[in-house]
Design a protein around this nucleic acid. Structure first.
Lengths: 149, 149
DNA sequence: CTATTCCATAGTATAATGGTAGGAATTGAA
DNA sequence: TTCAATTCCTACCATTATACTATGGAATAG
C-alpha cells in the first residue's frame, strides 16, 4: 500500500519531537528537518496540520519550537493517520447507488469493509510511545553490541 | 482506504463471471457491464488485464465472452489485487536512502511493514469462491425471508 | 461475408501529490 | 526599541495517477 509523504513524515516528525524533547525545551522544525532529511518548508505544513489536530503545541520566537501536547502513550496512531489523511482509514467506497443486494455490495461488505475493520484492529492499539520504544530498543541493542565487541 | 475503480470493478467482474457462467457458455462483457452498471469500454480494459493475469480465458466471435480459467476456489484475492494494482499490497516505501537505524527506518519496520503483513494475512486467505459464497448466501437469506412472510 | 465479440492503443479532463516560495506575525534578547 | 529567530499562513506549480472516452482492428461463428 502506498503511504503518502504527509502521513509518513508526520509520524516521523512526531516521533522525532517525542525523542528529542528535553525538559522545558521546544524542538525546532529546522532541527527536525535536518535530522530526518525533510524539506523544511514542507515539514512546516505538516506540523501545521499536527498542531491543528492537537498533537503538538507550538511556540513562536527565538526559543520557539514544538512539543507534544500530551504524553506519547496518549497519542493514538489511528488519530494521527486520520488527521494527516482522511482516506487511509476511511471505509472504501460509500457510494451505494447500486442495489444493496447486488454483487458490488456483497464485495463491499465481505471484502472491503472487513479489510478495513481488520486494519483498524492493528492501528487502534498502537500509540506513539510504542513506535518510540521500538526505536529506543534498536539503539540499546546497538549499544550492547558495541559494548560486547 | 481508497480503492481504485480498476481493483473494485475487476473483482466485481470476476465475481459476475463466476456467478453467471453456465455450462459451456461464455459470459459477455456487455452483459457484465449492464448488470453491474459499468462503462462497457472501461470494463473491456479491465478484462484485458484479468486475461493477461490468467484469471479468465476469452473467446471471440458471435458466441464469445469470458469464463474463469480455473475454479473460483483456486483464484486468490491477493493475486487479483496484485494484478490490478501493484501498489495495494506492496510494502510501503522501499526507498532506504536513510540510515537503517534512524527514526524513519524504525517507523517503517514497526508500523508500515507490520501493517502490510497484517493486511496480507487477511487477503491471502480469501479466494474468489469465498466472495461468491457471501453473495449467494445473501440471496438465499433473502429468499427465505420472502418465503416466511 | 457479415454481424458480433474481444483486443489494443491513444487521448483527455480532473484531481491528488509533493513540493517551492514569500512573507506576515510573534517572541525574546540585546 | 530594534533585531533576529522562529512559527504561521497562503498561494502557486509541476508531475503523476485516475477514470474514463474514442477509435478502430482482429478473430470467429454461422
Amino acid at each position: 500500500m502506498k503511504i503518502n509523504t504527509k502521513v509518513e513524515l508526520g509520524i516521523v516528525a512526531l516521533a522525532d519531537i517525542a525523542i528529542h524533547s528535553e525538559e522545558g525545551k521546544a524542538v525546532r522544525s529546522s532541527d527536525i528537518a535536518q535530522r530526518q532529511n525533510i524539506s523544511h518548508k514542507y515539514l512546516e505544513q505538516i506540523l501545521l496540520i499536527l498542531r491543528q489536530g492537537k498533537f503538538v503545541r507550538s511556540h513562536k520566537g527565538i526559543h520557539g519550537g514544538y512539543h507534544l501536547s500530551r504524553p506519547a502513550n496518549k497519542i493514538l496512531l489511528c488519530d494521527i493517520l486520520n488527521t494527516l489523511d482522511n482516506n487511509i482509514l476511511a471505509n472504501m467506497y460509500e457510494k451505494n447507488d447500486e442495489q444493496p443486494d447486488g454483487i458490488r455490495a456483497s464485495v463491499n461488505n465481505c471484502l472491503w469493509s472487513n479489510l478495513n475493520s481488520y486494519m483498524r484492529q492493528f492501528i487502534e492499539k498502537m500509540t506513539l510511545e510504542d513506535l518510540i520504544k521500538e526505536y529506543k530498543q534498536g539503539l540499546a541493542e546497538e549499544q550492547n553490541y558495541m559494548y560486547y565487541i
